[in-house]
Design a protein around this nucleic acid. Structure first.
Lengths: 163, 163
DNA sequence: TATAATTAGTTATATTTGTAAACTATTTGT
DNA sequence: ACAAATAGTTTACAAATATAACTAATTATA
């Protein structure tokens, strides 16, 4: 077994930093300069509420408020109160948001293509499969709850004595 | 070709968030609560200067100063001025730092083992190879220079009129 | 060899993000 | 009806990120 010099989590973090740098550059013509992944998520997930986005993109719900304020101000999204549960706000892309999401998707596709250059189809499949497994496996391990509000509603009993 | 719903860079970012949550939890007995990857890097790279760490872990040199201040204060490292180039500071682990790096490495190994559960050796190899390729490929693409000082010393001319 | 440019690291500042807690409004459970 | 839970917001603070200006030392060059 090889000696781990840089933890896998660090390697993936480094890659994501590089990736976001390239994506931001590639989309510098847009009038927003971050949260592209949120736009893409909304593009493929209609009628989802804030907690939904938080759970899927691993972001804190308090941070999400600011993200959505930013995107609302830029005219990409709007909040719609769910009439069936008025606590929830559905987040929807505006016409502009939908239009821009196509551009974002185009950039992402281009970057993905260039990133996976020299990687075979089979290797790509395995890479994605393993990345998925890693995330699933690691989710099961004890963690500082850090930055999200993932349903841990099963053990209600411990809630009370959380200082 | 499959539709990309979540960019690879986002998926890896999510994984690294999960990973760091688990690592932080697992090392909560230590008297530091972050920058474990820097310690590990120093453990396997002797006599490296700050810029060196920055380039390898993709961190900004100004941020690195604070990181190293934190680790110095905690007694994990010290800075040693390179006598052959007195601008450079070699960063070395202290005895304590070396001792603690073993604990960190142990935690990392355990987490890696659990993360790669159900993933074959061959798949693991491919995963690492692809991740490496992705990072290399993406490094070649135009990017907002974001958070690091990777040699872009080729275009000296534009330096002056940078407001 | 003087001086200009570059480099390593530091300091300072502003912005953004992460974390936690308290809070409102609403819904659910009893 | 009342307690508990949930979605989202606000606030406050710590940490991370981005920039730029700065010092000191080194390298290039004219």
């Amino acid at each position: 077994m090889s000696v781990i010099e840089i933890p896998t989590g660090t390697k993936t973090l480094i890659f994501s930093k590089l990736y976001y740098g390239v994506l931001t550059k590639s989309l510098s013509k847009l009038d927003i300069d971050r949260y592209f992944a949120v736009i893409l998520f909304l593009n493929s997930n209609k009628k989802c509420c804030q907690q939904n986005i938080c759970n899927n993109l691993m972001m804190d719900k308090a941070a999400m408020v600011k993200v959505l304020d930013y995107l609302t101000k830029a005219g990409y999204i709007h909040r719609i109160t769910n009439p069936l549960d008025r606590r929830e706000h559905f987040i929807e892309l505006t016409i502009k948001g939908i239009k821009k999401s196509k551009e974002i998707l185009k950039s992402v596709h281009e970057i993905e293509q260039k990133a996976f250059l020299g990687v075979t189809k089979k290797e790509t499949l395995i890479f994605n499969k393993v990345l998925h497994s890693l995330s699933n496996n690691i989710k099961e391990l004890p963690s500082t709850n850090l930055f999200f509000n993932y349903k841990n509603t099963k053990n209600k009993s411990t809630k009370k004595n959380s200082k």
